[in-house]
């Protein structure tokens, strides 16, 4: 999963164009999952690579490109959540999105979208630190050691946060499914 192809020459400066080709999908998924879907994803994905471009001279190649980009995207997402917490745009947008999806998609697709929306709803209720670990482990399929490197925390902390996240996730998922069964 870790890729350093987006570095060039001995200076190991970041080639943003190549970095986007290789890691654009990863960054976009991370942004969507950390902050939920909405027009802000547009901003955050692009801004991640613009920041990477501006800071490319500081990229020393010690960490992988993916790790570097993750750190930037994570911080931008964190900042976005903090600045929007009062307005609570996410819930409105997600609700609108779901409505649009319901009316336009086929039945199987609706079910799939509902599954995804359920997971996203649950993820959004986790504290940020647990949420990012859950996303990287459960949805991005990263190994514990990789997560420890990307997030910059000890492996033990990864497992602790994942354990806490899972407890909450199980509780919330059951609540979601019960709610649905009752409706």
């Amino acid at each position: 999963m870790v890729n350093t192809n987006a570095t060039t020459g001995s200076t190991a400066q970041l080639d943003v164009d190549q970095a986007f080709r290789e890691h654009g999908g990863f960054v976009a998924r991370i942004v969507q999952r950390l902050t939920a879907d909405g027009p802000h994803v547009d901003d955050l994905v692009q801004e991640t690579f613009i920041v990477a471009f501006k800071k490319r001279h500081e990229f020393e190649g010690r960490a992988s490109v993916q790790t570097w980009l993750y750190a930037i995207a994570r911080n931008l997402c964190f900042r976005h959540i903090r600045s929007h917490r009062r307005r609570d745009h996410f819930r409105q947008r997600l609700a609108q999105q779901e409505q649009t999806d319901r009316s336009s998609a086929l039945e199987g697709e609706i079910e799939r979208r509902e599954s995804i929306a359920r997971v996203h709803r649950v993820l959004q209720q986790l504290p940020f630190k647990q949420r990012e670990i859950a996303i990287l482990y459960e949805l991005e399929g990263m190994e514990g050691k990789e997560i420890s490197e990307v997030v910059g925390i000890p492996l033990g902390t990864v497992w602790t946060r994942l354990g806490q996240a899972r407890k909450t996730i199980e509780k919330l998922m059951r609540r979601e499914l019960t709610k649905e069964a009752v409706q």
Partner: peptide, 25 residues
Amino acid sequence: FGQDWRAAAGDEVASEQLAAWGQGI
């Protein structure tokens, strides 16, 4: 609820959307 997580893990960003972002960047 493994099914939900499989669906979410397999959810990809549309390639057109990615291409548009790439152009913007």
